[in-house]
Design a protein around this nucleic acid. Structure first.
Lengths: 111, 111
DNA sequence: CGTATCGCTACAATAAATGTAGCAGTGAGA
DNA sequence: TCTCACTGCTACATTTATTGTAGCGATACG
């Protein structure tokens, strides 16, 4: 994993600006990160069901993303599997307008 | 880039679900995509200044992302350089809560 | 012509992601 | 206890994505 950052803020990658938004944008701009948060929106999932939900993504990368998301405080591992923390749920909440936007976008793109 | 999708909705990658949110999540979950939209927030930038704003990312990938974003209808090339379309500005607007969240997150992470 | 910039591309090197297989640990049922 | 199904998680070779450097043709200014 090569990164033992205590809370994922210091140097998430390509975001040496110190601005949290950069770190967040960078963290979210990795494959499957957004998707994982999205798939966890309705409740916790254990690793294999999460894998299925994520289009059978490889466990390697899923595990890596899950670790990053846990270090960032967005995801936690409970008895029910992986679930969003309160903070993670807040993050997901910011996706809601994105969801509505996506619907609008698909209509636009289709025309 | 092996993809000539007319409007970026059909098969953005790993999103054969048909749900627009998946396509959007996938498109945004590529390196520099979120960042580009973010950097264009205050106005158009020509390619090299955009490169500088994006931490000197390689022109190869920037060009690729720019093409994708243009096909998706989020970015356009004008006399002033690359700029967000009205649709792109709508997309950026959904990031605003994300920005506020990032600030809160950084405080959380720091503790 | 020389020298800028523009958008954009080629290409080799490196890093990230994929796909398949399998580990150790836990708990249930026979 | 043995087996079976599940949990989270990892190894490893292959493929794909990204990086970094260099440079293209076109346009504009002197």
């Amino acid at each position: 994993m090569a990164k033992q950052a205590p809370a994922a803020k210091p140097g998430v990658r390509g975001s040496r600006s110190g601005r949290p938004i950069m770190a967040l944008l960078d963290l979210l701009g990795r494959r499957w990160t957004l998707r994982i948060i999205w798939e966890l929106r309705e409740g916790a999932l254990t690793s294999r069901p999460l894998r299925s939900a994520c289009d059978e993504a490889s466990p390697t990368i899923l595990q890596a993303r899950l670790t990053e998301l846990r270090e960032a405080g967005f995801v936690e591992l409970t008895d029910d599997g992986y679930g969003l923390t309160p903070l993670g749920r807040e993050l997901f909440a910011t996706f809601t307008p994105l969801h509505r936007f996506a619907e609008r976008w698909s209509k636009h793109a289709g025309s």
